[in-house]
Amino acid sequence: MDIILKNVKKEDFPVFQSLAKSLGFEIVEENEKPYNPEFVKEILEAREELKQGKGTKMTLEEIDKLWK
């Protein structure tokens, strides 16, 4: 059985580690990886372009035709 603890404060983590160790549990830390910096840059640039009016407006029908 797996138990996942989220949003554990740094000062509380040693308590969980100690308890798990005393009970013979295995602790696996998985830190969320941040987004790829290039991807974030592209998104921010696209948002800025939209603010400057460089976007293209499409109706739902036009969007629907794109994927068919």
Rank of each mutant, 00 (worst) to 15 (best):
V40W: 03
L44Y: 05
E26W: 00
F39Q: 13
D2H: 05
K10G: 06
W67D: 13
E48I: 04
E48W: 00
D12N: 07
K21D: 07
M1K: 06
E32W: 02
I4C: 09
S22L: 04
A20L: 01
P14A: 02
E11G: 01
Q17V: 14
E26F: 03
V15S: 08
I3Q: 09
G24P: 00
K41C: 05
D2N: 13
D12A: 07
R47H: 12
E49A: 15
V15T: 09
I27F: 04
E48N: 13
A46Y: 11
V40M: 10
L23C: 08
V15Y: 10
L50H: 09
L19G: 04
F39R: 09
K10Y: 06
R47W: 04
Q17N: 01
K51I: 04
E32D: 13
Y35T: 04
F13H: 02
E62Q: 05
F25H: 09
K21L: 05
S18I: 08
K54N: 10
S18K: 12
G55D: 08
E49H: 11
M58T: 05
E29M: 07
K6D: 06
L60I: 13
L23D: 03
R47L: 14
A46G: 08
I4D: 05
E26H: 08
A46V: 11
D2T: 10
T56Y: 05
A46W: 03
K68S: 15
D64E: 14
P34A: 14
E32K: 13
A46N: 11
E30R: 12
G24Y: 03
N31H: 11
E48K: 14
F16W: 00
E42H: 12
E61G: 00
L19K: 06
L50K: 07
I3T: 09
K10L: 09
K41W: 02
K6P: 00
A46E: 14
I3G: 10
I43H: 09
G55Y: 03
T59V: 06
N7Y: 07
F39K: 08
L19A: 08
Q17L: 12
S22Q: 13
K9D: 10
L23K: 07
K54W: 01
Q52F: 00
D2P: 10
T59W: 03
K54C: 03
K21A: 06
K68N: 15
A46Q: 12
E62W: 00
A46F: 11
L60G: 15
E29S: 10
G53D: 01
E11F: 02
K41V: 05
K41R: 14
K9R: 13
Y35P: 06
K41F: 09
K9L: 05
L19T: 11
K9H: 04
E38V: 12
Q52I: 00
N7M: 00
L66G: 06
E49Q: 14
P34D: 14
T59P: 01
M58K: 15
Y35D: 15
V28F: 06
D12S: 07
T56L: 04
E49T: 12
E42G: 01
N31R: 15
I27M: 04
L60Q: 14
L66E: 10
N36T: 02
F39V: 11
E45F: 12
P14L: 01
K57L: 14
